[in-house]
Design a protein around this nucleic acid. Sequence first.
DNA 1: GCCAACGTTGGC
DNA 2: GCCAACGTTGGC
Length: 156
Amino acid sequence: MTSTRKHYWLMKSEPDAFSIDDLQRAGTEPWTGVRNYQARNYMRQMQVGDGVLIYHSSCEVPGMAGTATVACAAYPDPTQFDRKSDYFDPKSTQEEPRWQMIDVTFERKFKRVVPLEEIKQHAAKLGEEFALIRRGSRLSVLPVTAAQWKILLSLE
DNA sequence: GCCAACGTTGGC
DNA sequence: GCCAACGTTGGC
């Protein structure tokens, strides 16, 4: 888990709530609210400097909007302790926090949003098992291989 | 530990 | 707004 190699990820965000433009304005943003164990486990594996594709979901044109980098190692998501937060989790404790998160730093906004529809056309190259294009996949944080990263960036 | 019911995600 | 797919919950 302490590899020095750079790893790549894709993170989904609903642009109505938080878009690539919001990230550009913010610079660095705490990625709060992930409440899925698999997604959390991926965030635990993240290391400073890892590449992140920012993906817009649940919107008019779902697709890749830009890139960011991982700004810090995973740490407890404070919203799980906040009763007023949508992400409050009564089963989580300070001693044993259930949810972690990372911060991401804006890197680049794509000249255009690369639509999911277009990404799907490259399924053969990307691999059918790539979670983003797998039917019914709802994972909001998923790993991207170096080869996939290269292909995905080339679509811009 | 099974599984039905329910809630959520997210493309369309 | 619909609904398929999936994760979680809770009764048994």
